[in-house]
Design a protein around this nucleic acid. Structure first.
Length: 199
DNA sequence: GCAATGATGCACT
DNA sequence: GTGCATCATTGCG
């Protein structure tokens, strides 16, 4: 498969633009020279200290400091004690914003994904959901802060796959009802014709 | 099929 | 001690 890594400037733009442009791109995980690849089908934007649903809304902490750092870095955190969530940091340094990757379409390394997911048979459940895709690609907090532009283990790539603007749907974000006025913002983006959406 | 529940770790107050 | 940007399993129809 032919593809090229996305450059840093791709991630230094407006978070919503980055989120929409990430749809259809490839997430490539390298483990012991083996590749696991998924196409991004669903994302959410978390933007700045004014966004109450964003972890950075209450200022910089040890947990979220990666979001205040350079665009194109991985922000991985643990949720509900058992699941990791994978984000890509966007925009300028000291401006906390990121795109949460919620769902992927499996492209390559299906057998390894299945193994990481406990041997389940339903391919649609390998990577549909932020906790699931991290399990399938063996993403945990050891890659938190990794530079996805100059990666050792993980990067985002473009293989020329074209996504029509009309194929992108939006909706309110998931699991953020506590965020008041920010809970209903349509900052979730997904490919409406894909079978690989977390729902 | 669907709703309810339990598992579980870490950062933060 | 509390509260999560979740998922798999159970128990019901």
């Amino acid at each position: 498969m032919q593809y090229f890594q996305l450059p840093k400037i791709f991630f230094e733009r407006d978070t919503h633009a980055v989120a929409k442009d990430l749809l259809g791109k490839l997430l490539v995980r390298t483990i012991n020279t083996k590749h696991i690849i998924g196409r991004i089908t669903e994302v959410e934007s978390y933007v700045g200290e004014n966004d109450k649903a964003c972890h950075a809304a209450k200022g910089k902490t040890k947990r979220n400091e990666v979001m205040f750092g350079h665009a194109g870095h991985a922000y991985v955190y643990l949720i509900y004690g058992m699941y990791n969530c994978f984000n890509v940091v966007t925009e300028e340094i000291d401006f906390p914003a990121a795109v949460l990757i919620r769902s992927l379409e499996p492209v390559s390394g299906l057998a390894l994904m299945q193994k990481h997911r406990g041997g389940i048979k339903d391919k649609k459940k390998f990577t549909t959901g932020p906790g699931r895709l991290c399990q399938a690609l063996a993403i945990d907090r050891t890659v938190n802060g990794n530079d996805l532009i100059n990666p050792d283990e993980l990067f985002v790539a473009d293989d020329g796959f074209q996504v029509a603007t009309s194929a992108i749907a939006t909706s309110p974000r998931v699991g953020v009802a506590y965020a008041g006025d920010h809970a209903n913002l349509p900052w979730r983006y997904y490919l409406k014709d894909s079978d690989f959406i977390s729902g």
